[in-house]
Amino acid sequence: MGLESALGEGYLTTKLDALVGWARKNSLWPMPMGLSCCAIELMSAGDPRHDISRYGMEVMRFSPRQSDVMIVAGTVTYKMAHVVRKIYDQMAEPRWVIAMGACASSGGMFRSYSVVQGIDQFLPVDVFTAGCPPRPENLFNALIELQKKVEKSSVLDYRDRKEPIIIS
């Protein structure tokens, strides 16, 4: 390669996108938006058995300013939807959203007057996770898929505006 031979040994060149993508993907800090039952499985994901820190994601930040990925775990009611949206708006870009469980993805088993039928009605979602609740393994699957997506995303336009990932 032209540039490497000109610089000599000891240099590594890469695309800025690849470098930033690599760095971002390995330090995704979740904002656990634990709302109901799925939040308990989200807590289980952090327990000694499943150990979410293997993926560098154990830094659960309850402050939206410090987090990169919001994991919406649970049933979102209309009353809560405003709060969820507000917290999302407070997060610094780049930011991603995982819809954990059937409720967050589609309203799940609650076809009722008070439940939002899927958070994609008011949030841009990157990964949908199936299960009621998803086992922690499935949540990790979602996080790994998100990592792949983050790695590929561009610095200038981080949000891949194509189809979200659906994990079933």
Binding site: L35, T77, K79, V83, F110, R111, S112, S114, V115
Partner: peptide, 11 residues
């Protein structure tokens, strides 16, 4: 309360 009101009794 009510942020997780899912309407069980109606369901």
């Amino acid at each position: 309360l009510g942020y997780l009101h899912r309407g069980y009794e109606k369901i």
